[in-house]
Design a protein around this nucleic acid. Sequence first.
DNA 1: CTGAAAGCGCTTACAG
DNA 2: CTGAAAGCGCTTACAG
Lengths: 345, 345
Amino acid sequence: MPKTRATQTDIARRAGVSQAMVSYVVNGNTRVSIPDETRRRIEAVMEELGYVPNALARGLRSGQTRTIGLVVPDNTNPFFAEIARRIENLGYEKGFSVILCNSDYDLAKENAHVDVLLAKQVDGVIFCASGGSGGAQQRLLASKTPVVTIDHDISNQRDETVLIDYRLGGYLATRHLLEQGHRQIGCITGPRALSSSAGRLTGYRDALKESGLRADTALTVPGDFRIQGGEAAALKLLRGRRRPSAIFAFNDLMAIGAMQAARILGLSVPADVSIVGFDDIPLAQAIYPALTTIAQPISEIARLAMEVFFKQIRGGVSATATPAGPSVVLKPALITRSSTAPFAR
Amino acid sequence: MPKTRATQTDIARRAGVSQAMVSYVVNGNTRVSIPDETRRRIEAVMEELGYVPNALARGLRSGQTRTIGLVVPDNTNPFFAEIARRIENLGYEKGFSVILCNSDYDLAKENAHVDVLLAKQVDGVIFCASGGSGGAQQRLLASKTPVVTIDHDISNQRDETVLIDYRLGGYLATRHLLEQGHRQIGCITGPRALSSSAGRLTGYRDALKESGLRADTALTVPGDFRIQGGEAAALKLLRGRRRPSAIFAFNDLMAIGAMQAARILGLSVPADVSIVGFDDIPLAQAIYPALTTIAQPISEIARLAMEVFFKQIRGGVSATATPAGPSVVLKPALITRSSTAPFAR
DNA sequence: CTGAAAGCGCTTACAG
DNA sequence: CTGAAAGCGCTTACAG
């Protein structure tokens, strides 16, 4: 067993050819026609020495690393887990690896991660912003690295984004509740700075207004997109003096927390309180009662994000003097299950 | 704006110093004392040009990439999501990135991923094996890359492993059910080749035997560690001619699927059928009824895995002529919640 | 203290 | 068809 990993030079020496020849067969270079005999000999030695190409050297030389940076707030959230899964998979199929970064909804961390990704010369980054426009955006912009932003609408001159119509989602959720006769509808938001959260809020208010109702600020409480936060927020809502008969949680995890809160207070879902979530994670239909929610087309989002990404790196990075603003906007859909019921009190 | 990213040479030229000087200040090299004035000038230019070190070049030269490969079967499973989260976090704190790979319980894919990780010169890999001993193990061994294996007991001369006592977990789950008076206890396993699954099965059988019962093969059905698979398996179990009064699912996801199956059949949990899971994912306590399960100390597992990893890379890779077999074995614990109840029929 | 230089492993024109 | 060589951006002895 060799002390260190075999290099092309090692192979070349052993096969009695030049190092360039080895590189050619490794890369299946067609511009040069290598006699079968030579090729076979080289391949034999490669096998024998257990040759593994050094991607660092290759990347340094070629300027391509076949690596994607993926920044999500929290890979533990089933929505992002699913995104990560699909990005990873799609990447794998095309020979790309993904570096996973959790920003934790923290701008400073987000920036730190982006710096590392830049240093590692990733070919691009898929970005689920944690809110606001931190320095990360500028840094990425300046570096001319292809970026696809998901789940957050940052309008700048160059980034590609794939979004869903969050306002519509918030509107659909709320209207569903209104149609069921609910009038006191609470909502549990996400981090304020996130446009994905802001959009849902607008939709919520729009639906209320359409029905001649005004959003009661006491019925809007902030959440953190996690189960715990949803539970705490719902507890506050359900213990308030104007108890809502329905709650719209801005994601499924918080909706699950809200269901737990109802249980704690001895309230039945949906008899006493209806609950709507957002995302349609796989669990939504597996829990009891099955969660009514707004479905995001997760696989579509991931697929499009990767498509856009590949188009960018193919077209050449700086060739992206193309469109400003959102490239793609997908439509969410209401999925009615059993966590919502007509108002009856 | 420069056409390409600034390099140390660019900085040096602009600051009127040699490139080596730049490298020294970038790395805070102390073996050389640079006058404050020079240092400041260099730093100013770095700032001005937005210098980001090229990790590829650095890695190629230094033989260290500060990158960890993480191979899990499915990052969408909350157990692995949590592992990934913590590994990523611990790595981040020490300046390491993680490349995420899903093996999908597929040996071929696992191998392909390992090859890529090796090519990318990761400093080590954290491995949640997908079952059996594929070529991945050998490849890793041959490459002398530090490896920490979680969740699967591969006994070889060099790998470090951090495991929990799966047999004990299976035993505890089953005994709990037995103590509740259940005699017909079904179990939903995971992929056969996985030692983590095999261990649970042994524990299940041991507990049965201890109570003078024999494992009825008709009551052991294979699952896939996913909700769907758990549901299908439970359906089979509950529709069989010898309907079990209790089910031990080898992970929480399948337990959730089993609960759904019970619901489909109009069976109540735990009144008609008790269900125990394994893992204690955050959801276990959030769903209804709250899931009785065997808790794996996830954060402990991740912490130890990283600790072992850092010890390995610190000690120097091949200095690991140390212990064979499992380095650490943690104990699981039964968490009793409301998905299990005394047998009464 | 500072600079010139080797070399990490590769790709890719450029000559023979 | 084949080889010698430059150069990607860095770190790190080695001389001055």
